[in-house]
Structure formats: C-alpha cells, structure tokens
Design a protein around this nucleic acid. Structure first.
Lengths: 159, 159
DNA sequence: ATGGTCTCCGATCAAAACAGTCGTATAAAA
DNA sequence: TTTTATACGACTGTTTTGATCGGAGACCAT
C-alpha cells in the first residue's frame, strides 16, 4: 500500500545523481545527460527522459539543449523538497478522493462521511514529513530528518 | 499521489460505523450487517462485503452468520490501529518495491540504488504515524493524534 | 425437524491507471 | 552543415483496481 510510482523512484534517483555531480566531491559543476543516468541505474531511457522533462517544467532542474547538454539542478539541494518532487511527478498529495475537491463535488459519501476529518489529519502529517525532507538530506551520509524535527518544525522552529 | 484504495476507504467507514453502534450512545451492542452499511454510505454492497470478509479474516471484526447476523468488532477500538486495517486490506506498507524484499531479488537498480535508505526512513515514519492512530481516535469528537504525540511516542512515552 | 430466508464467502469479469515504447521535431555546439 | 542532445506527442501492452455474479452455509420461525 501507498507505493510510489516508478516515475517517482526514477525521478528521485536521477535527482540524487545530478546533485552529486553538481555539489559532490568534484568541485566543478558537471552537466549530466539522460542517457548517462539511465545506464547507471538500468532504467529505460525514454521513460526517464519524460520524468526529467516534467521536473524541468517544475523548475526543479533546468535543461541544456544540444551537444554537451543535459540537466542541472534548478535550485540548491536544500530548497528541493521531496514533497515538491513527488507532487511534480505524481500530482498533488491526496490519500483520498475528496482531499482537494470543492463543495458540491461528486463524492456520494460526502454528507455521511465519517472518516474525512481524521484522514485529512493523517494526510497533513505525511505532507509535513515529505515537505521537511530535502534533496540535501538524501545525499551523502547526512543524517536524515527525524520525527522530532518534524514536530519542532510544526511549532515554527527553523531548521 | 499516495492515494488510498476504495477498499481502504470503505473499510474505514464501515469500521467507524460498526464501532459507533457497538460502543456509541446506545449502550446495547448492536450487530450491523453489510446491507445496512452499504445503504448508509452509498457504496456497492458486494464490494463492501468483500472488504468486511477480509477484515474478518484479520480478526479486526468478527462475523455472525444467519438472519439477524452481521458484524461486530473483534477487539477494543483502542487496539485497532489504522496501520493494521490498511495492511489487512491493501497489503504491507511499502512505498517502494524493494521495501520488504530479501537480498538477491529482482531489483535491477538495487546495487546502485542511492535512495533506498532515505526512503525507508520516510516509510518508517509513516508507519509510526498510522500505527499510533486507532479506531478510537477516529470516533466521536475525540481529539486526534498529533505530530507531537507521535514524536513523544517514538521516545517511548505512553499515550 | 425442516423449510425458507438471510447472511457470508469464493471465483469471475470489466474498466482504468500505469509502465514502457516509438517516431519526429527542435535546438545548440562543433 | 553535420552531429548530438533534449522536447514532445501518440501509441501499446500490462498490471492493478473496482465492481459483479452465483453458490454455500447458518440461523430462525413454523
């Protein structure tokens, strides 16, 4: 349950790879292309291309056309949240159909629905979790976000 | 993204309904059948039946056959976690394919995978969230679990 | 005791979402 | 101008999901 799509998997892998080449040991920023990533992680080139195009449209990465072209991060890894990446590739977070619908929608159960409120609470918690973890946190041996830090974040404490 | 299946939605609604009739205002425990729930929330009878059967197998509810039959909760609402309900209906929680696989599995990216560890961390956090919220929390006006309480829970504090 | 009714139960079918593929167009560097 | 890269759209096969059907078993009234 709650499985991420392949697009999301591939997207995150690619971002981690791009970030490593741009901010990693090698001081020089290096443009990396689709084919290189696809071969490194054994994923279909065309599908990865589509994923990268989507990320590019969202401003998460920027594309450079032509020979020696490829992709670079569009922002600092600290500013790229997992939530933004996933929403870009899979659409807005919504654990149920009526998460983002307006009043008078097509949900037959709406008026008698007894689980909407608590589920929205869960959804909000998951979103906070994903929104407080960045690409930076996924790189290197950097310690990941903990539940505690999510809690403090909710209280308005800066990271 | 991360949308729950209809089965999960229906299951949670039904459980809330059963619990309300068993532990609600009416002191007398009342057996409620599939048809009644289906009509109340406008969901297909047969599909709901299947969902309830699954929940019954998991011991979350218990079935009573024959006329005047139906379902009752198998445990106290405090002991029925959302995680257990969802896993019963949708299979084990796994935000990626390789969440529960053994070594030497079919994941082509496994050896070069750079996102497995952080994603497992996220998965673990989500699981804690779902495992610390019970059917009791979903009933009535009872305050729901908060992020803070999840954090304290992780530190071993009793609810 | 037995028939009838009501329920749970297992197998089956159709629709939708997803992963992956193909071909072509466009843009930049050599 | 040729090469090499991304950008874009349409298409196909597969998996998952949602929904449906017919049957088997249990209870209650007669």
């Amino acid at each position: 349950m709650l499985k991420l799509s392949k697009k999301a998997d591939y997207g995150l892998m690619a971002l981690q790879h791009i970030a490593s080449n741009q901010y990693g040991d090698v001081a020089q920023a290096r443009v990396v292309n689709t084919k290189e990533i696809a071969e490194e992680y054994h994923i279909p080139v065309e599908l990865l291309a589509k994923v990268l195009q989507t990320l590019s449209k969202s401003g998460i990465i920027e594309s450079h056309n032509g020979p020696k072209g490829g992709y670079l991060l569009g922002k600092n890894p600290r500013e790229i949240t997992i939530a933004h990446v996933l929403e870009s590739l899979e659409g807005p977070l919504g654990i149920m159909d009526c998460s983002h619908e307006k009043d008078g929608d097509a949900c037959m159960q709406r008026e008698h629905c007894n689980i909407r409120t608590p589920l929205l609470k869960i959804q909000s918690s998951i979103y906070q979790l994903l929104n407080n973890m960045t690409l930076q946190d996924m790189m290197g041996g950097t310690p990941l976000i903990t539940i505690q830090s999510v809690a403090t974040e909710q209280q308005g404490v800066e990271r």
